Simulated scan of single mutants.
Amino acid sequence: MKTTLFSLIMMLFFGTSVFAQEQKTPDSGLGFGFQINQFQDDFAFGLNLTSPEILNGNAAIRLKANQSYFEHLLDGEYVWSGYQNLSLGFVGFGGKVGQGIRLYGEGGLVGIFPSEKFSSEKFRMSTYGTFGFEFFPTPAFNYFIELGVMTSRARADKIAGSPFFSNGFVASVGFRVNLKK
């Protein structure tokens, strides 16, 4: 499984690099997209909205909404209980690798809305930080990969052992459509 995932990422990387040779700069208007995430051991998917670039094209503001699933035992069976999170972050663009790959860092606040099936909390505020790579096959479209951390320390206190959820290592992949400014 890991070998297959690594192969797919490498094909995406090299395939995007070939198409990106013609591209000069990404469109810097409003961006919107879709992502698949892993928050510690929790699977998630969601939507993202990125502001037009600010500070001479060096930064943006990003809003993300995710539907997440925490796997746990309930009445002797493993189940996935859904919960949501909403994040608002500042994105700083750190430079380009070649013409079609842009590096960035992102950090901000995240609000977590746990399920009553596994947590007695209704809401938890936290922070997150990621580093990412955007691959631009065209100025109006990009794929991205993000790796980072979420510092929620959220616990599933209704589950034996009170395991952490939505805490620790974060990985995201997805795409964005970027509208012209």
Rank of each mutant, 00 (worst) to 15 (best):
T4Q: 09
L5H: 00
F6E: 10
L8V: 11
I9H: 04
I9L: 15
M11Q: 14
L12V: 05
G15N: 08
T16N: 15
S17H: 12
S17T: 14
A20D: 10
E22P: 00
K24H: 06
K24T: 09
L30R: 06
F32L: 10
G33K: 05
F34P: 03
F34Q: 05
Q35V: 01
I36V: 15
Q38K: 15
Q38G: 14
D41S: 14
F43E: 13
A44C: 08
F45E: 12
P52N: 11
L55R: 05
N58V: 00
A60D: 01
A65P: 00
A65I: 14
S68A: 15
S68M: 03
Y69R: 09
Y69A: 12
Y69C: 01
E71N: 12
G76E: 12
E77P: 00
V79Y: 08
W80L: 10
F90W: 11
F93Y: 15
G95D: 02
K96I: 00
V97P: 00
R102Q: 15
Y104T: 08
G105H: 02
G108E: 05
L109S: 03
E116I: 05
S120M: 00
S120R: 08
R124G: 01
M125W: 04
G129R: 03
G129P: 03
F133N: 05
E134W: 02
F135I: 02
T138W: 07
A140G: 14
F141G: 13
F141Y: 15
N142L: 06
N142V: 03
I145E: 04
I145H: 02
E146V: 02
L147K: 04
G148H: 03
V149K: 12
V149H: 13
T151K: 05
R153A: 10
A156F: 01
D157C: 08
D157V: 03
I159S: 04
I159E: 11
F164P: 00
V170T: 05
L179R: 07
L179A: 10
K180M: 07
K180A: 13
